[in-house]
């Protein structure tokens, strides 16, 4: 096993061991923190697919996070108030079932990613960054002005949604669900990176002209990657809403997009477990430093500056050395 392999194994062991220990020791708050870290990691695994593999610097991934959150919020809101959705033309009922909510979250964020991707991929580089950022802001303002679903105040869901055969109100069981989904997303990412599609994506990032010359469609690969990436982040959004039992426009805010990107960078771009390491580090810092000092964001900013300017590989890079390249 390579050094990166050991680091990854240690991460997984920690994500299994610490919550189990907290469960036995009777510390539900630690499990909640771990759940938060795992959900953020899932969102960042989504972004890493577009950013690391496809080279798409999206500053608008909060869109998908928020759509996932609102998919959960809207469905559960109608279920808890016993009102049909869109009474004029669809008249369907809400639901409290997680699998249905996840499906809706994944499909709707994938659709949004398709539309945003089609428009944004007409450009590249700095235009792409600004446009994804702008679309994020559009959804943010739309959520604020949408009074039927709480507007600026957001909406609360009183009871966590259910999963067949599990008691989701038990912190460790809900954590288990989130952890399994994270593992599934990591497996999918690893699978994509090795598949012909992943190789094409890698090549389209590094040498777009050559990809075009051999008759492959790099732009389409990037679009597909963007859609899958959005769908994974959307799923994370639905879980995040369920963790807090609350959705609000802040899920769409561009700070959220920035934070998802920070998870990827702190951990190490294009490393399979980079987003996981980054999210865990972020949540740990938020908890430890946030308790010590109200203005801990100053330290976060300085740390981020340090990583960007001096430690390009992030945490995984520091621990496991340089990434293997395929030159």
């Amino acid at each position: 096993m390579s050094r990166e392999g050991y680091v990854n194994a240690a991460l997984i062991a920690g994500l299994i061991g610490v919550p189990l220990w907290a469960h036995v020791a009777g510390e539900p708050f630690t499990i909640t923190l771990a759940t938060r870290a795992v959900i953020f990691a899932l969102a960042a695994v989504g972004l890493n697919l577009a950013l690391g593999l496809g080279g798409l610097v999206s500053l608008g991934h909060a869109v998908f996070f928020g759509i996932g959150g609102y998919a959960m919020g809207i469905l559960a809101f109608h279920a808890q108030t016993y009102t049909p959705m869109f009474p004029d033309w669809l008249n369907i009922e809400g639901t409290k079932s997680m699998p249905v909510i996840w499906l809706v979250a994944v499909v709707s964020s994938a659709l949004a990613a398709l539309v945003i991707g089609l428009l944004s991929l007409r450009t590249s580089g700095v235009y792409f960054i600004m446009i994804t950022l702008a679309f994020g802001q559009m959804f943010y303002y739309f959520a604020i002005s949408w009074r039927a679903y709480g507007g600026e105040d957001g909406m609360s869901i009183y009871l966590r949604n259910s999963f067949p055969g599990l008691n989701t109100l038990d912190p460790i069981q809900f954590y288990g669900l989130c952890f399994v989904l994270l593992c599934a997303a990591l497996w999918l990412t690893a699978r994509i990176a090795r598949a012909p599609f992943g190789l094409l994506l890698n090549a389209a990032r590094q040498v777009p002209h050559r990809v075009e010359t051999v008759g492959l469609d790099g732009q389409r690969a990037k679009l597909v990657a963007f859609v899958i990436s959005g769908a994974i982040t959307g799923l994370a959004g639905a879980l995040f809403a369920d963790l807090n039992r609350f959705v609000s426009p802040t899920m769409f805010s561009w700070h959220m997009s920035g934070e998802i990107m920070i998870f990827v960078i702190l951990g190490g771009v294009a490393r399979l477990f980079g987003p996981v390491a980054g999210a865990v580090l972020f949540v740990a810092m938020e908890h430890v430093l946030g308790d010590l000092w109200d203005h801990w964001h100053i330290l976060l900013g300085l740390l981020l500056l340090g990583v960007v300017l001096f430690a390009r590989g992030g945490v995984i890079g520091l621990l496991a050395g340089k990434a293997r390249t395929h030159d």
Partner: peptide, 8 residues
């Protein structure tokens, strides 16, 4: 990232 860090 660096300019986002500056914002923070």
């Amino acid at each position: 990232l660096a300019t986002f860090a500056l914002i923070l």
